[in-house]
């Protein structure tokens, strides 16, 4: 049953993501990639659950590296997007 519920979320979120990106100026392509890339770091949540669960030493070690990679993705991703968009705003303001 969980699978069907997950599938429902997947299909609906897929259509939603499709509809969200309609008209987008070319200058925003790179910031959008950067911003959505940071969102895909959501896998950090999975890493945290697996790393902390203490199932086995190996699982914890793998989880540790997953948390490091995903945190780099999330923190770095949001910061780079922020810098990019700030520059963008400044250019527009001039």
């Amino acid at each position: 049953m969980a699978f069907v519920e997950n599938l429902t979320l997947f299909v609906l979120a897929g259509f939603l993501g499709y509809e969200l990106i309609t008209k987008i100026p070319a200058t925003l392509h790179t910031p959008l990639i950067s911003g959505t890339n940071a969102i895909s770091g959501i896998t950090l949540i999975g890493s945290v659950v697996v790393a902390g669960s203490g199932h086995s030493t190996l699982a914890s070690v793998l989880g540790f590296f997953a948390v490091v990679l995903a945190t780099v993705n999330v923190v770095g991703g949001y910061l780079v997007s922020h810098q990019m968009l700030r520059n963008f705003g400044r250019r527009r303001g001039e």
Binding site: L9, A13, G14, G17, I33, T36, S40
Partner: peptide, 20 residues
């Protein structure tokens, strides 16, 4: 992992990324 927010956020990125 049966985790809703992973599915929602990941799929949003997947779909919007394909369109982009």
């Amino acid at each position: 992992l049966n985790n809703s927010v992973l599915i929602i956020a990941g799929t949003l990125v997947g779909a919007s990324g394909l369109i982009l």
